[in-house]
């Protein structure tokens, strides 16, 4: 059984009617299905507006999905009461993209990391403090800096604080929404390595949402490519990068700028008319699906 199973997930946003305009529904997530195995890093890639972030948020019900199912260890989260959902979130946490805006600037790092423990009423004060110091070390921060404020940390260190906070409740599943894209290039690799180390040590399962395809290829075992709210291709990362099937995936991969001045460049431009929006995913090779 997969750890997480998303099936027929749909999220409509309603654009209110204006004076001269009827209200319209926008399908941000349009019948999306995929499953993530325990211990795996599953990549969700696509450009802005493709629905990848909304899909991640719907999975934690931070955004309420319109319809579909999100099963975690077999149980459908969308039927959970608010209390039960809060309990379930101990197992599933999210790390946001921007370490500058996702940490409260008026709270000390210790308080930020401790907050989930307080909300879930876990442990006495002394035990919580011990746990926070332990989490600081786990993510490679110096416990001597516990009482500092977010602005006293660098971008990479701030993302480590976000990670420590997400790990406070010992979750088994993390949604990483563009976790390194706001960081300096020379610091991204440190955080990526930390994520890989933590996954191994804590047996974590990741949903990695990203637009950096080089990075996704490097750390994900399987990926799904989203285009205008739908998954257009899904399969092992190696298979998709070696032989992309969907025209959008092909255009996307051909647009990655490579830091090699001698790399051959065959830019493919997507003709939106060539995309059959109604095509269903079909298996092109073992585990590799494409909507063509």
């Amino acid at each position: 059984m997969p750890l997480v199973d998303v099936s027929h997930l749909v999220k409509h946003f309603v654009r209110d009617a204006g004076l001269f305009r009827a209200g319209t529904r926008v399908a941000a997530v349009d019948d999306v299905s995929f499953s993530i195995d325990e211990g795996e890093t599953f990549g969700l890639v696509g450009e802005s507006g493709s629905g990848k972030t909304t899909t991640g948020r719907c999975m934690l019900r931070l955004v309420e999905p319109t319809s579909g199912e999100v099963r975690f260890r077999g149980e459908n989260l969308l039927g959970f009461s608010p209390g039960r959902m809060r309990e379930a979130r101990r197992q599933m946490q999210i790390v946001f993209q921007d370490p500058y805006s996702s940490l409260n600037p008026r709270m000390r790092a210790r308080v930020i990391v401790e907050e989930p423990l307080v909300i879930h009423k876990l442990g006495e004060r002394a035990a919580r403090r011990e746990r926070v110091a332990e989490l600081f070390q786990l993510v490679g921060l110096d416990p001597a800096h516990l009482e500092r404020f977010p602005h006293e940390f660098s971008g990479g260190q701030r993302q480590r604080i976000g990670l420590a906070r997400a790990l406070a409740l010992n979750p088994s599943f993390l949604i990483l929404d563009e976790p390194v894209s706001a960081l300096d290039v020379s610091v991204q690799a440190q955080v990526v390595n930390l994520l890989m180390d933590l996954q191994e040590r804590l047996k974590l399962t990741y949903l990695f949402i990203a637009h950096d395809l080089r990075l996704v290829e490097h750390i994900c075992s399987r990926i799904a490519v989203m285009y205008l709210g739908k998954i257009v291709e899904l399969g092992p990362a190696a298979a998709i990068f070696a032989s992309p099937q969907h025209p959008y995936t092909r255009a996307l991969l051909s647009a990655i700028p490579l830091p090699d001045p001698d790399a051959p460049r065959h830019r493919l431009v997507l003709d939106p008319a060539s995309v059959n929006r109604a095509a269903a995913l079909k298996e092109v090779s073992t585990g590799h699906w494409a909507a063509i």
Binding site: G155, V185, S186, A189, Q190, E217, H218, P259
Partner: peptide
Amino acid sequence: RGLLASIPGGAPGQRLNAIEGSV
């Protein structure tokens, strides 16, 4: 050298060659 080496592109799943410290 460090910047180029830290870009993902080697064998998938391997640790990246990060530059230590921060700017």
